[in-house]
Structures are given as structure tokens and as C-alpha cells.
Design a binder for these strands. Sequence first.
DNA 1: CGCAAGCGGACGAGAGTCGTCCGAATGTCT
DNA 2: AGACATTCGGACGACTCTCGTCCGCTTGCG
Lengths: 209, 209
Amino acid sequence: MPDLDTTTDVRADARRNRRQLIVAAREAIASRGLDVSALDIATAAGVGVGTLYRRFGTKDSLLDAVVVGLYDEMLESAQECLRIEDPWEGLSRFVMELAGAHRDSRGVAEVTAACDTVPTPEIEERTTALQDAVIRLTDRAYAAGALRADVTWQDVMISSRAGLDTDHCLGVDAGPDGWRRVITLLLDGMRAPGHTPLSGTAPHLHDNS
Amino acid sequence: MPDLDTTTDVRADARRNRRQLIVAAREAIASRGLDVSALDIATAAGVGVGTLYRRFGTKDSLLDAVVVGLYDEMLESAQECLRIEDPWEGLSRFVMELAGAHRDSRGVAEVTAACDTVPTPEIEERTTALQDAVIRLTDRAYAAGALRADVTWQDVMISSRAGLDTDHCLGVDAGPDGWRRVITLLLDGMRAPGHTPLSGTAPHLHDNS
DNA sequence: CGCAAGCGGACGAGAGTCGTCCGAATGTCT
DNA sequence: AGACATTCGGACGACTCTCGTCCGCTTGCG
């Protein structure tokens, strides 16, 4: 989260508004994605749109600041998972957390899926770092014999998006933790032997009607 | 695909335009989703927007006709899979085909995810029929000991959306068949014992760089 | 060949967006 | 306490995109 409270020579209210705008933008991006309007962000922050443009020059500039912060959080999560002793635990935990980050913020889902838009240097750098982390996590899991040999680190990365749009399907409501069940099953499929028990929060377990 | 060539007393060119509009709408819905504009459909069909409204009265009326057709295809696929002897083969095949239908048409993905909008009677009827089919498919798989006991038919339904948004993630390109790998892994996780070998079309197998 | 049926696309109305601008309010420094 | 530069808010113009209508022109068909 870069320069949230830069102590430059701006006035106190200006600094406060800047902070509020970043917080509001973060929430707006989470729920509405990167297409959120400048007016929505400003209103949520309790300021006028003029203030937004005065503080950040461009709507995109504000969005960039928020997105970089989100990437840093994903990176931090990856580092934590690399510190977990059990390689499988580390890998599966990171996949679950990355999937969670995607679900928590529609903006994250949009920006990690971008393939044709040119990323800013900050984003590119963090993307590479995240790839490195995933490679390390999968290599550890291979070495421990916990990960199927035909599953690549790219599969792992991609899998973290599998829970994205899995809330409803053809009249079925997956419930608030439905996506966790999907990711768990996916991880089970990637695991070399055995199963992980599904969490007990299953909706309608065997309720065939 | 309802009344594609109703031989009512309309003129031949009117009937032809109606057909072209449905074909164009189907393609437009597939690539752009249900929010496609009337002008886009009409242009793709090679007619003016006036013709669209004259033939269908409402944009939604045209969309409904297309969507019902898509549901019928999903239902037909389900019936075919129920005719497959091996219960696991039948179940996994249907999940893959349902996932494929979701990927082939953005409109399908949007409409099967709808939970707050009230469905038309035609859609509701077909949704129930699809649920029944999935229940039958899973019950067969349970009985054969092929499906984990803690996996519900709702899990199966939801899983068919897992491959939806899995083309790119953090710089990784899943390739054209990436979603199939995801669904395969997911099915492996749902399977009672053993693994299904992943298809050989894996991009960058163990290309850790 | 004549005419009803059908056609295309310009059009009005409305929604939603971005970024600017300026009179009013407010923080800060003396 | 007072003065003044900084900052604020939101109305505003300009633009894009949407739907569904309407009417002069074309065309299929008896």
C-alpha cells in the first residue's frame, strides 16, 4: 500500500481525503471491479469528484495505487506459505488464499486475468515475484512427493481462479463457502495420494431433492 | 431451438430474416453475453434493427428464444450421458460437456448463474429437468462406488462452472484446453479412488521458468 | 402489374461516463 | 485573530452507448 500518509507539504484535510479515497476505491474495486466510476468512489469516500482528480490526477492513477497494494498482500501471503514446513500444506494453503483474494475483490480477478493490456512496471515486477513463489511452492511439493507429477505450476496458478464464478448454477446455491469446496476438490485432484475431507459446511449434503 | 421456420403466412424474406436473426443472436450471445445490443445482433444478421423489433417485438423475446434452445441442448447432452453404461464415465462426461457449454457461450454462463432474476416458465422447467438428470447421474455413481460419499450433486453442478474464468492468471496462459485440465483435476478430486491421467495437451509441462 | 407486407436506419430520449472549472469553505501561518 | 493560499464540492459540457419507434422506400407475391 504505497504512500498512504506521505508527509509532504499538503494540507491535513487533503491528506485525509487522499486516505479516504484509497480506502473507498479499494472497497469499490472489490465489489464492482475496475470499471467502477469516479463518482462512485468519490461519493463512497465522502468527497466530490473534483477532489479525486485533484489528488490523483487520473482515475487510473488511483486504481493503480490500490491494485499494487492488493498485489503486495498476495505476495506477503505467498511468503508466509513458503515458511510453512509441510510442502503440501504450504502449497494448498496458498492456492486457497489466492483463490480467496480473487473472490474477495472483483478487481483482483480482473487484473490477474488481463493478458492483452500492458501492465505497469510495478505490477509486472510483482507478477514475476508471484510466479517465482508458486514455482518454489510446487517444487517443494514435488520433492516431497505430495504433488502429482503431471500437474504444473501453471496448473496451480490457474486453479486459483476455479472458485471465481461458482456461487450458483442452474438453481443450485453453493452457499458462502461453496468456492472452498471447489478448491478443496481441485487440490485433492492435484494431490499425489489420498483425500482431504471436505469441510462440514456443505449445503444439502446428500439432500437429493 | 423453437420455431426456426414456422410456416405462418409471413413473407419468405421475413422468415429468412427471422432465421438469420436467431443465428446471429446465438453467436452474439455466445461471445458477448446477454448484454449484447440489438444493433449488434441486427448488423451481424445483415438486417436493420427495425427488422429485429418487427420480428420479435422485444430484444428480450429474441434472447429468450435463443437461450431456451441452448438449454435444450444441455438437456439432450444429459440424456446422452445417462445412456452411457459406466456411471463414472457418464457423470464425468456430463460435467465436462456442461462446463464446455458454459465456456462456449458467455450467455449460458450468465443465465445459469442467475439467482435473483425470475426465470421464464420454459427456463424453470428445463432447469428442474437438468437438476433431475444430475441427481440421477450422481446416484448412479454413488451406487457404483465411483463418487466420494461427501460430494453432493450440488457440488457436481457447481463444478461445471469451475473452468469458466481460467484462461489466464498472473501472466500464465492456460492455453485453449486449460479449462479441461481444471475440470479433469476437479473430477479426480471427486472420484472415489485413483486418478485420471491429464490430457497430453498440457502447456509447458514442468517448464519451470 | 399492383399493392400489401416488409425493410433499413435515422432518430428522440434516456442513462452513464470522464475530467474541468469556479465560487465557497477551510486549514495554516503569522 | 486575521489574511490568504490551498483545497473542496458538485454542476457542467462533451461524449458514448443503449432501446425502441417511425416513415419513406423496396420487394415478394397473387
